[in-house]
Design a protein around this nucleic acid. Structure first.
Lengths: 217, 217
DNA sequence: ACATTGATTGAATAACCATTCAATGGAGTC
DNA sequence: GACTCCATTGAATGGTTATTCAATCAATGT
């Protein structure tokens, strides 16, 4: 008797599909139990697979963790790159696209933020993190610095140091992520984005709108 | 034959001294090995004591971790409170004191930042964190919001929302900590502090100096 | 049908670790 | 000097977990 509602999934799948499946389960497990609470038994149970599969598709638990981080980092980079690399928009719009990517629901949700901070928090994973995403973080910061420089020049702004601004933005991004993760009642994605935009309005008033009504206008 | 260089320490010490000793060793161990890599064997070895002592002076490993976090939180709170609660200084100066405390070498060093982010990163410790320092974080944010409101009123500033500003500051603090921990070559304590002050100059130009030479003046 | 190949399973292994506790030590008290 | 009371020690215990691997399964080619 076949069940009409659920087609039975094939018992075997291509390795790449299994890898993705295990990575997704790892993200879920880390978000629920942290890195130290994430065991291969929990990951495979979450994925609905058997214990031995991790060491078959990945060399080791550590390799699985690194692959999970790489997966998130690539997803993040893919988003902000695609949103800000169009050649037909102004620098201010590109910068805004980077901010939007930072707080995009697909990236900035507590399930995935948990994983980022799990890597920040453990020293061995932290080393892995530096290797994997250090260059990507630097790339993004250089991109924002470049855009800030363009906005400064084109807009004729004074007293702006692009590197200071991009470093401040970088910290704002990370700190907002942390607060959204820790205090979701007090810090929301939308609020964080608005605050960053408000900061950009302070720096570049003619290129970024304020959400605060300006009594002068 | 007595060794002249080292007086032998007494074999036994008051419980409070042992507790501090174990907490210090825990901070060191977490900074070296993360929370999951921190075993009671490593902590006691670091402290030069024997394995069983932790469960004698603390109920459990988890109690030791919570005590460690509380120790750091109290140290942090003690610093910014003492620096900003004097009644004879202007609000801007108090706000600056909070910023200074945030980047004080005693608080903001990689050894201790490691511990903060270890707690952020693991979900069970994160729950403990929320209980221990959630109220303290809120207290500090309320204090900065209050100061921002006073500065706004006294300085006659427009278009400033104190809550937005204090939330932005809070994120800037945390994000700076993270970058100092992750990328000490690119982010230093001094630089982070200067960037925050530059942000405050943007908000309250008449109360905070800019480090950028202003061509208009 | 049969064989081959590669994916999958889960029991077995070995290492690690928090916690317990009986034994020891030493400082103060009588 | 003997006694008492804690602090201290570290071996033993029990539970957990990453990794291995022999056996099983399913799909594909012949």
């Amino acid at each position: 008797m076949q069940e009409p509602a659920t087609k039975k999934p094939p018992r075997t799948a291509p390795p790449e599909a299994r890898r993705d499946q295990l990575i997704e389960a790892t993200i879920t497990s880390i978000s629920k139990h942290g890195i130290s609470g994430t065991t291969l038994a929990k990951v495979t149970a979450e994925a609905g697979l058997s214990l031995g599969l991790v060491n078959f598709h990945f060399k080791s638990k550590e390799a699985l963790l690194t692959a999970t981080l790489t997966h998130l980092a690539d997803e993040h980079r893919g988003l902000w790159i695609s949103e800000s690399s169009r050649s037909d928009v102004a620098p201010a719009e590109k910068l805004q696209a980077i901010v939007n990517a930072q707080f995009h629901p697909r990236i900035c949700n507590r399930r995935k933020l948990s994983v980022w901070f799990a890597f920040f928090g453990e020293s061995r994973p932290r080393t892995a993190y530096r290797k994997v995403t250090g260059p990507l973080d630097e790339e993004r910061q250089n991109a924002t610095a470049e855009l800030c420089a363009e906005i400064t020049t084109e807009g004729g702004y004074c007293g702006i140091i692009p590197e200071t601004l991009s470093a401040t933005l970088e910290s704002l991004f990370d700190g907002s992520w942390l607060n959204i993760l820790m205090y979701p009642d007090r810090f929301t994605r939308k609020m964080a984005r608005d605050n960053v935009m408000e900061y950009l309005h302070l720096c570049f008033p003619r290129d970024f709108e304020s959400r605060v009504t300006n009594p002068q206008s």
